[in-house]
Design a protein around this nucleic acid. Structure first.
Length: 292
DNA sequence: AAACGCGCCAACCGCCCCTAA
DNA sequence: CTTAGGGGCGGTTGGCGCGTT
């Protein structure tokens, strides 16, 4: 199968989407010869692609440990934090998100984060937007992370209790028939499972390390201080004032939080009320209670 | 049902750095 | 020291799919 635009160009290098045949060839050759030497690999494999194209296809799509699917709140939080630290150093940021590629992170930043900046009418790389992200977006993501931990715990309990109910029903009959007593208690199972899952989630947020910390430089090893976001969250009102929104009192903000609705597209956590603050308070001093 | 707009993301491009000859 | 080739990285593009009109 030949991609659009490449029909008849049998002697030239191919461009555009990869076919499954090409993918299979590449996988086969990389698994037998290893990564690297991409130009010679492309020739040996009979792929009419540049070495660069092969490398990109492998790293961004075919490599077995590449994660698919939406970025988790933990990963989003980490991207925001690391970007505020390192800027557009996508590959460096990607090193701290196992299974995620620099391309994916770059796309996330451009499509989600920069979109938010556009809506707020600020430059995504400006100090103001950075402050906004730290004060509003990160605490929201943190809440989501904590919620995911909590729901994980509760769903584990539910699953566990369901499991015990059903398995007990079945096994009680068998046990009664065989005279066997179940040696495992319910509470032991729940406790172990929940503790394990909580650690998995917490560790992914709190300590995100590069592949092999021993080889990393000091800068490569990244540890997130989760307490700083809680502190930031409590400073929301102060930040609003710093940004020139002196007309908002704490009670008003709290009330608006309860009344507004969140719009969440692909992990975006701004809500209409927050956007309203940033877009309108300085420019158009209309009575915001009219919107309620 | 068709046209249109928009967001997402895979892939390309160009520049830069590194290394070996 | 110079130069050419390979690879890495960040920016950009174009096509696809989905929602809306």
């Amino acid at each position: 199968m030949i991609p659009k635009g490449n029909e008849g160009e049998f002697d030239e290098l191919r461009k555009g989407p990869w076919t499954s045949e090409e993918d299979n060839l590449l996988i086969q050759y990389v698994s037998s010869c290893g990564e690297g030497r991409w130009n010679s690999l492309a020739k040996c494999a009979g792929l009419r692609r540049t070495g660069k194209s092969c490398r990109l296809r492998w790293l961004n799509y075919l490599k077995p440990d590449v994660k698919r699917g939406n970025l988790t709140p933990q990963e989003q939080l980490l991207i925001l934090e690391l970007h505020s630290k390192w800027g557009n150093r996508w590959s460096k940021i990607a090193q701290n998100l196992p299974g995620r590629t620099d391309n994916e992170i770059k796309n996330y930043w451009r499509t989600r984060v920069q979109k938010q900046a556009r809506q707020l009418k600020v430059d995504a790389n400006s100090d103001r937007f950075l402050e906004t992200v730290k004060s509003f977006w990160m605490p929201r993501l943190l809440e989501k992370v904590e919620q995911s931990i909590a729901s994980l715990s509760s769903s584990a309990e539910n699953q566990e209790s369901t499991f015990f109910q059903t398995s007990n029903q079945e096994s009680n009959i068998k046990n009664a028939q065989n005279g066997i007593i179940n040696p495992f208690t319910e509470s032991q199972g729940i406790e172990k499972f929940v503790k394990h899952e909580e650690n998995v989630v917490r560790n992914s947020v709190l300590t995100c390390t590069n592949n092999g910390c021993s080889q990393s430089t000091e800068n490569d090893l990244y540890q997130m201080d989760i307490t700083s976001y809680n502190a930031e969250s409590s400073r929301q009102q102060e930040t609003m004032t710093n940004l020139g929104h002196q007309d908002l009192c704490a009670s008003e903000y709290q009330m608006s939080e309860n009344n507004c609705f969140n719009f969440e597209v692909g992990g975006t956590l701004w809500n209409t009320d927050e956007l309203w603050h940033f877009r309108n308070v300085e420019e158009v001093p209309i009575d915001r209670h009219l919107w309620a």
